[in-house]
Design a protein around this nucleic acid. Structure first.
Lengths: 193, 193
DNA sequence: AAAAAACGTTCACTTAAGTTAAGAAAGTAG
DNA sequence: CTACTTTCTTAACTTAAGTGAACGTTTTTT
């Protein structure tokens, strides 16, 4: 299962056997069952996650309603805001499916950065990539209507449509579940005429 | 004017006179007049900006309409997506006011990182901070209605209301200028009753 | 200073999302 | 397998944003 991680990393930097062993020694691989809450509102966690298999979801609970803000699937990483701000978390993170994850915290990172500076470069590159992706996502969200957001989700992440309940997708798209149903009906009607 | 930059940096790391001199030698300080387009759609630029004074705006032009996605004011930095992806830019960046900026590109950064590793740490910390801020901004945008977004903008960035034309604010909030007018009228009406 | 352009507000009308409620369908647990 | 719960869809009604147009104001240009 750690092969998944090594394959991913190899796209960025080559790893020696020693480096691979060091990673394994950190004991960061975890399997987690569907529905597990990894981070709850108010928690002071310092754990970051990387998804090897499965799907994570982050969401706020406002007036009893879940507002889904992001999904993280294979080969995507998530460092909760509270890890960076060192404040209690304002949102939840839970597993939408059975998952294989890596779990790490800043102290573990510091440790391995010192032994193998190569990992620091890797993390910097990844976080730059992430920043650009996030900016594009945000821009796309702002520019598009809910209907356009739904259509581009269909195009860019068709897998999500299958794996995630509609009402979670709805709030991810920025509408109520009823509106998503209606919006889909509208699209189907259009495509027929 | 470079004092502004040194004061800002000193919140994160202490700089020696040598380090300050090295920064100044890079010749990164520029003054730019209001209305200058720093980056246009299609450009392949590798320049990043840091605002010492003034205000930058990034926006898409879609079907002849400007869609403002962000404002950058004093002590805020901007690395356009195209710098990271090395693709032609999909959006514009222009000055909303007369500005004092620093302008730098990756090769200059590499040069100074090598001489003074301290700057690399600084940039890593800043970009982590930025990532967290962006995530929070995105989440807030998703969670709120246009009216709530307007009110929280009033609260969090009251300066923008003064310095930026309404129609730019409107698309930043995610509505048409007419809707922003209406929305403001609605709020005033409410507060009276 | 006059003319032109850009900006902000208001209005009437259209379109789409929020809300409330009901019922069908699917998934889960006993 | 049945009962229960959650999820999805549909519908009628309400609320707010989009659209097109008019009009006064401000800013820019010449």
């Amino acid at each position: 299962m750690q092969e998944l991680l090594f394959d991913f990393i190899s796209k960025y930097v080559a790893l020696t056997e020693k480096e691979k062993a060091a990673l394994v020694d950190l004991n960061i691989f975890k399997t987690v069952k569907k529905g597990t809450v990894l981070l709850a509102e108010g928690d002071r966690s310092s754990d970051g996650y990387f998804v090897l298999e499965g799907c994570l979801r982050s969401y706020y609970v406002l007036e009893g309603e879940e507002k889904t803000t992001a999904f993280y699937t294979e080969m995507e990483g998530l460092t909760p805001v509270c890890v960076l701000t060192k404040q209690p978390s304002e949102y939840f993170v839970s597993t939408s499916e059975d998952c294989i994850l890596t779990v790490s915290d800043p102290s573990m990172e510091a440790e391995i950065f010192e032994k193998f500076p190569k990992f620091e470069t890797l993390c910097r590159v990844l976080s730059e990539e992430l920043l650009a992706k996030q900016q594009i996502n945000f821009d796309d969200f702002k520019i598009a209507t809910p209907e356009q957001r739904y259509l581009s989700l269909l195009e860019k992440r068709p897998d999500l449509m299958q794996r995630v309940p509609q009402h979670q997708l709805a709030s991810f798209i920025g509408v109520k579940p009823q509106s998503l149903s209606r919006l889909r009906a509208r699209i189907i009607k259009k495509s027929k005429s």
